[in-house]
Design a protein around this nucleic acid. Structure first.
Length: 817
RNA sequence: GCCGAGGUGGCGGAAAUGGCAGACGCGUCGGACUUAAAAUCCGAUUCCCCUAGGGGAGUGCGGGUUCAAAUCCCGCCCUCGGCACCA
């Protein structure tokens, strides 16, 4: 397919001009309303693929649209530049991560520029540069001093062969190390965490944001708030410091049905409570559980297994003494790491009790229950039985009653548990922002003073395929002195999770050059929060949740004064090729460069927007692009015609009226569709309009004035979608530079309104005739028309209508049975 | 298993509050132009029946509500995304 204009030249020319004129420079301007439209910045993988374009080009069209609507738009771009692939490149190809990253940035920036977006490149941020990560570290210290960062022992993925920890993404699906394929186990390490759980309830509150419900639901599920109770079971008889085992349950109403206790294998009480005769068996089970850890989770319907540890605890409410087991279905990381076993009313407990021959005692009676044994766990509400003083209470009320009783007796209390865990930010890696902490032999854990930031990554690190972070054996880096007492000290050699960088980059765009702070309050005040954020839904529970937490934390520290980073969110779908996701291994990756070379950015932009609803993604089909190139060719011809030719021919008043009507209807449709990210129907209505223009040119039924006006408005409507082409044609038509500084056209509601409608005439709900009538048609007129239609008469076959339904402006349905 | 989104021609997809199913585009077929092809332009294109004019069926499947259902309700099937022993 060949274009009638030269996209390469034309696009290059205008990009240069816009650049030279700083047309898209974002400047604060209190006289105009601001609009901060942000697209998730890309990772510096090295190449921009069509998926990036799919995320960015429509977002740019939307930002351009807002700009033409009079908003002062900030639509910045940057690079997520820390991360593992840079390190792997260093190991595999001997390229320093910094070099690899910056080469990629350069290439991607070049590719991005060709898209013709309104990015203000003066605001670019690259997270791996010290000028950026200095402030990532600074923010870490702020969180640390606010008590939101802490160090704790946590299990990490450990490869026994490589002798190193692995990030989750380095563990293959079969639970083995991606490098040596050894089974990965867990190893407990001291690591850094952020207290995101402190914000769990506020993160559940979505009243201040307009996000897709889907994402809100995913976040809510991820946070997993459960109301219930914490209950203490007595173990005084063992003479330990701990006098009780605490469990979390959402079913305090079933507490009289507890017939056993389950501890997570790693529970600290296990070694203390295990009786000598059980020791070997218990230790073997703990070891096995440790070994399987995350791996065996893949088996869905796994049977509940465990071992009795020889000890018992006391149900303080019922007085029952119940055996204590360890079982891997109890997770140390959720609740208290201990579960009260109520087999009658919990599926897993039921299966466990059946397997180990443990008593199953019904305490919530199903309707019509006559005391017989349950075939399976009964999970629904019912009436409390076998529950002492609570017998006869409906279980829903029983929950509160039991909690109240336990609180009075000091053996338990109502509480809330979350699935969400604190955010582990330590990475045993080189290519990340060093965590600015020092371990002093005398002072312990000491924060690096602000004035000593940044803690720079040593450039001369060695990248050996040992799997260990180069920082751990970089003596100059690791060995330091304590900032407080001056004694020899060791630096933290872990670096930060890259989600840390992306949790505040949108703030940095407001003050990209600030060198004495991560951002300036006055800049934030003007630009933030982000009005519209767009990106993939794959970040629903990681990046998006972390960024929300970050903003709330910084607000509480006093660094900013809003509650949410992103007011509106839109998730584009995934673009696929050959019915599959694009990936290097499948060899079906579409590279935009070749298409930009031959067809130009504007074609790709429009094609991606036309392919289907943006949030549903779509399939890249080479042939489909033909539709856009043909359309541009026709538009090009049409726009460049000399409208004076029309004046030699008689005009048709109806055609003029209809063209005006269509013009305003199109403005309305395009405006509303762009507002709602419905680019596919935006394009469809623009195409329809040009189809109409083609017809009226052929029959010469409009005058040059209407034509010129139609073309002018059309170009303005096209500008956000095809910025180069629209600018070129705008200029060729003699309008003044730049089209992108023009206001977006406004429609006249009277002109946009339909003057004529097609009235559908139905008999018994089936369409039998259609008549064109003025939109002002009255009910009587419409019904009259229906009754006089020959086709309607034929289908009535002389029957008397029993009912006539009139839908204004739409149809008449005659019912006759 | 649980949560969420979706299923419409040969294909991508259009269709406020229930009210003309298939906009727009791709592809295909026919025609024009051409020595020929490409490109371009014009026309047709849901399926079935019919010589015509027209008739019938049709939005994953089966029921239902309604004058009227792609749209609402009930029960299934399938696809995609997320979570996955969360007590």
């Amino acid at each position: 397919m060949v274009l009638r204009y030269n996209p390469r030249e034309l696009e290059k020319k205008w990009q240069q001009r816009w650049d030279d004129d700083k047309l898209y420079e974002a400047k604060q301007d209190s006289s105009r309303p601001k609009w901060y439209e942000l697209t998730m910045y890309p990772y510096t993988s090295g190449n921009l693929h069509i998926g990036h374009w799919y995320a960015m080009a429509p977002a740019d069209a939307h930002a351009r649209f807002k700009r033409m609507q009079g908003y002062n738009v900030l639509h910045p771009m940057g690079f997520d530049a820390f991360g593992l692939p840079a390190e792997n490149a260093a190991i595999n190809r001997g390229i320093h991560p910094h070099t690899w990253t910056m080469d990629n940035v350069e290439n991607m920036r070049r590719q991005l520029r060709r898209m013709g977006a309104i990015y203000d490149w003066d605001r670019e941020v690259i997270t791996s540069l010290p000028e950026y990560y200095k402030w990532t570290q600074w923010l870490f210290l702020k969180l640390y001093h606010a008590g939101l960062a802490y160090r704790a022992e946590a299990p990490a993925n450990w490869c026994p062969n490589c002798q190193t920890t692995l990030a989750n993404e380095q563990v293959l699906d079969d639970g083995t190390c991606e490098r040596c394929h050894t089974a990965v186990t867990r190893k407990d390490l001291e690591q850094w965490f952020f207290r995101i759980t402190r914000y769990a309830d506020e993160l559940l509150d979505t009243s201040k944001i307009q996000w897709p419900e889907r994402i809100n639901v995913m976040q809510a599920n991820w946070i997993g708030r459960s109301e219930g109770a914490e209950i203490a079971f007595g173990i005084e008889e063992y003479g330990l410091d701990e006098k009780e085992i605490r469990v979390f349950t959402t079913r305090p109403d079933t507490v009289f049905g507890v017939t056993f206790m389950v501890l997570a294998p790693e529970h600290p009480l296990v070694p203390l409570l295990t009786t000598p005769d059980r020791k070997d068996e218990v230790e073997a089970y703990v070891e096995a559980a440790r070994r399987q850890s995350e791996i065996e989770r893949l088996s869905t319907e796994k049977e509940q297994t465990g071992v009795f540890i020889g000890a018992y605890c006391t149900n303080k409410l019922s007085g029952d003494r119940v055996p204590i087991y360890i079982a891997d279905y109890a997770l140390l990381t959720y609740g208290t790491g201990a579960v009260m076993g109520v087999p009658a009313h919990d599926t897993r407990d039921f299966s466990y009790a059946t397997r180990y021959d443990i008593l199953i005692r019904t305490v919530i009676a199903p309707e019509g229950w006559r005391g017989d044994d349950l075939e399976e766990a009964y999970l629904e509400p019912g009436v409390m039985v076998n529950s002492g003083p609570f017998d006869g209470l409906p279980s829903q009320e029983g929950k509160q009653a039991v909690i109240k009783a336990m609180e009075e007796q000091g053996i338990g209390s109502g509480t809330v548990s979350y699935r969400l865990r604190d955010w582990l930010i330590s990475r045993q890696r080189y290519w990340g922002a060093p965590i600015p902490m020092v371990y002093c032999q005398k002072c312990g854990v000491v924060a690096v003073p602000e004035e000593d930031l940044p803690v720079l990554l040593p450039e001369d690190a060695e990248f050996r395929p040992t799997g260990e972070s180069p920082l751990t054996y970089h003596q100059e880096f690791a060995n330091t002195t304590c900032p407080e007492c001056g004694s020899p000290a060791r630096r933290e050699t872990d670096t930060m999770d890259t989600f840390m960088c992306s949790s505040w980059y949108f703030l940095r765009f407001a003050s990209p050059k600030a060198d004495n702070a991560p951002f300036r309050p006055e800049d934030l005040k003007y630009w933030l929060p982000v009005d519209q954020y767009t990106g993939g839904a794959e970040h629903a529970v990681m990046h998006l949740l972390y960024a929300r937490f970050f903003v709330k934390a910084l607000r509480d520290i006093g660094l900013l004064d809003f509650d949410e980073p992103f007011l509106r969110l839109f998730n584009q779908g995934t673009i696929i090729n050959e019915r599959q996701k694009m990936s290097k291994s499948r060899g079906n990756v579409i590279t935009p460069d070749e298409y930009v070379d031959s067809l130009g950015a504007d074609v790709i932009r429009a094609y991606l927007m036309f392919i289907g609803p943006w949030d549903q993604g779509g399939e890249w089909v080479d042939q489909g692009i033909n539709g856009i190139t043909r359309w541009y060719n026709r538009v090009w011809d049409m726009v460049l015609r000399d409208e004076a030719e029309l004046d030699g021919r008689p005009t048709d008043d109806d055609s003029v009226v209809q063209t005006r009507h269509l013009l305003h209807k199109t403005i309305k449709k395009v405006t509303q569709d762009l507002e709602g990210f419905r680019f596919n129907t935006t394009l469809a209505s623009l195409m329809s309009f040009t189809n109409h223009l083609g017809k009226v040119w052929e029959d010469g039924s409009v005058n040059s004035g209407v034509w010129r006006e139609s073309i002018k408005v059309f170009l303005l409507l096209l500008a956000p979608i095809a910025p180069h082409l629209a600018e070129e044609m705008w200029s060729l038509k003699g309008y003044s530079y730049s089209i992108h500084n023009q206001p977006f056209p406004k429609w006249d509601e009277a002109l946009a309104a339909e003057k004529e409608i097609t009235l559908v005439l139905q008999v018994n709900g089936k369409v039998r005739d259609r008549v064109t009538v003025p939109a002002s048609v009255t009910e009587e007129e419409a019904k009259e028309l229906a009754m006089t239609s020959d086709r309607v008469k034929t289908h009535l076959k002389g029957r008397k209508p029993s009912r006539v339904i009139y839908v204004p402006g739409r149809l008449v349905n005659i019912v006759a049975r």
